[in-house]
Design a protein around this nucleic acid. Sequence first.
DNA 1: CCCTGATTCGC
DNA 2: GCGAATCAGG
Length: 190
Amino acid sequence: MQWTDERVELLKKLWADGLSASQIAAELGGVTRNAVIGKVHRLGLSGRAKSAPSAAPRLRKPAASPSHRVSAPIAATAARAPQSATYATRGATALAAAPVMEARTIAAPAPRVVPVQLVETQPIVCENVTIMELRENMCRWPLGDPSQPDFRFCGGRCTPGQAYCAHHASIAYQPTNDRRRDRRPSFPTH
DNA sequence: CCCTGATTCGC
DNA sequence: GCGAATCAGG
């Protein structure tokens, strides 16, 4: 990819909008966040509207050995998760305006088996994360009303590829014989 | 661990 | 000029 005028303009705009480098990279496509940051610096529009947190002198680099340099283009060409329009983070913050979410975007995943309360055998660790904070290895157990702004997901640790953490998986996936006629068609709070 | 931006320097 | 590697940090 190359920095065409259009891409540079978009970069400037998004950077000015307060998006993080990785978010901009995802938006542009074909570049990594490093590329974005590098470009931002070259354009001289670093240090956004924010006081320099730490003007640390920063020591010189230890002189990198010529050793390994990964042949780049892999991620560039590889399918890039669009992930558009889902800005904002909280960990190492760089949040931009979080667009209003549409209800359909956050429809609760419906477990195939009706959830039934079990005896607690382990501490429940719900971190109550928003959909934007959800990661591949985070529990997607919905908490609250999906139509409400305080809707969250459990967010507990789970094996990548798994929908729920151990606790919620035990609730969601039960043998059919445990299922008695109709039960709450909704999720228990925990 | 996730993430952030900053910097260096081989290309 | 570009951006991966690395750093420093939340």
